[in-house]
Nucleic acid binder design. Structure first.
Length: 423
RNA sequence: GGAGAGAUGGCAGAGUGGUUGAAUGCGGUGGUCUUGAAAACCAUUGUGCCGCGAGGUACCGGGGGUUCGAAUCCCUCUCUCUCCGCCA
């Protein structure tokens, strides 16, 4: 959520409008109006309460002195004030609520470097690891390779749970486990602290990360206990720092966590969701950083390099996009997407998204630090996948298939999975 | 699932209607002392909102009520702990 200061700042709103190519002016002016109303109400309420407090003291004194008659006169005055304050309090509460729901409507302001744009066609390719490999005949898509080698069974997954819940078997299962370990090691070696968080979160956590109340339909909800299955480790990990005022000497905070991720993906069907392309349950290793505002773009760059190094170990063709304003996710100020090339599907697959949220998340989380002058300031938060498993596995299988039908493992993966070949 | 206890500042822990934003201890920060450190001593040490500021106001798990006045009394919700049962 944007801060009120940002909403009042003309330049900021201009950039928001320009970069996302969307007109937010009506929401902005509503918020500003509501903010002024809120301030006035607050002032009226405070002075009303101040009077009431003074009278209460006087009444106490009068009773002590035994002047009951005078005290009773003041009592009625106080009652009137109380009535008035009740109304004001109600006004203030509803003004604050209205303002909040209006604020929730505004997405983050893209960074100045982000290009203005509407959708993915405006995204910039900022890095390519070596170009798209030439087309070959007879390549099998990963779901056929998975079937052939009996390493992922989608039908059995349907039997047990439903579509989008694959069953990994034997080397397929070991590949998952090995990759998770490899990714986590890569992160902890770079100084990230490993967490194993709860896979279900309460409502407060969902609200703090912005998954609730709006995107409710995207998460699995356990009604009996009112818990939500996490769509990403970002939710529990970020909530570690909810309502925190951290010591600035401790920044940056670097966290990594492996979790399964659960997504309802309501309304997405068709050829593009085949195989491992889009699932209801998948595994992902996440990295999260909390930084000083001055450092967050250096950190974003560092995270980019970090994920690049991991991609290099996997030896897959990939590229990095810097998303344009309109394609940058709601909470993000700058996002880089990593995409691997799917050789058999002949298309790019997103495997990581690295974002700087600046204060957008921290504001809702109330994640702050104390600056040199002792004032509390919002931290910046960043996160990224390093990496999401399914599409990596898809690309890995397709990219490394040999003419005899077997699939080789990249050198860096072999010690983690304990085999060099499938089939 | 049954029975009971509790929820107060970074932590521990007082406070049962009137300068209590809250004793005390620990921790943190600054200082004195010291070659340095420790110890000791002194001071300081929550957050939000409104206000240029002085200052005001709110917050003792959440919500509601009683009262001129509530951390303190009442109702309600949530959570935590202990014992029993069940169980990886």
């Amino acid at each position: 959520m944007l801060t009120l200061k940002q909403v009042w700042d003309e330049e900021t709103i201009q950039r928001l409008t320009e970069k996302r190519k969307t007109d937010f002016s009506s929401t902005v002016s509503e918020i500003r109006l509501m903010d002024e109303h809120r301030k006035k109400t607050q002032q009226a309420l405070d002075s009303c309460l101040q009077k009431a407090n003074e009278i209460s003291k006087q009444v106490g004194d009068l009773f002590k002195k035994g002047e009951a008659a005078a005290a009773n006169d003041l009592k009625s005055e106080s009652s009137a004030l109380k009535e008035k304050s009740k109304g004001l309090q109600e006004q203030l509460r509803s003004a604050e609520e209205d303002m909040k729901s209006l604020l929730y409507k505004l997405p983050n302001v893209p960074h100045a470097k982000v290009v203005a744009g509407v959708d993915e066609t405006d995204n910039e390719v900022v890095f390519e690891s070596g170009g798209i490999p030439a087309k070959e005949d007879g390549l099998l898509p990963h779901w056929e390779l998975a079937k052939k080698h009996e390493i992922i069974d989608f039908e059995l997954g349907v039997k047990i749970a439903g579509a989008g819940f694959p069953l990994y078997i034997d080397k397929g299962a070991r590949l998952q486990r090995g990759l998770i370990n490899m990714f986590l090691d890569h992160n902890t070696e770079a100084g990230y602290t490993e967490y194993l968080p709860p896979l279900f979160v309460n409502e407060a956590s969902g609200i703090a990360t912005g998954n609730l109340p709006d995107k409710e339909g995207q998460m699995y909800h356990m009604q009996v206990d009112d818990l939500y299955a996490i769509p990403t480790a970002e939710v529990p990990v970020t909530n570690i720092f909810r309502d925190d005022i951290v010591n600035p000497d401790k920044l940056p905070l670097k966290c990594t966590a492996y979790t399964p991720c659960f997504r309802r993906e309501a309304g997405s069907y068709g050829a593009h969701v085949r195989g491992l392309n889009r699932l209801h349950q998948f595994d992902k290793v996440e990295i999260v950083q909390v930084t000083h505002p001055d450092k967050s773009y250096d950190t974003l760059e560092e995270m980019l390099q970090h994920v690049k190094a991991l991609m290099a170990k996997l030896e897959l063709p990939y590229r990095i996009l810097r998303l344009c304003g309109g394609d940058t996710t709601f909470a993000s100020a700058m996002t880089y997407d990593f995409e691997v090339w799917s050789k058999a599907q002949d298309r790019w697959l997103e495997v990581s998204s690295v974002s700087n949220f600046e204060t957008f998340q921290a504001n809702r989380l109330k994640l702050r630090y104390k600056d040199e002058t002792g004032k509390t300031q919002l931290c910046h938060t960043l996160n990224g996948s390093s990496l999401a498993l399914p599409r990596i596995v898809a690309a890995l299988l397709e990219h490394n298939q040999n003419s005899d039908g077997t699939v080789s493992m990249p050198a860096a993966v072999i010690p983690y999975v304990g085999f060099d070949k499938i089939g």
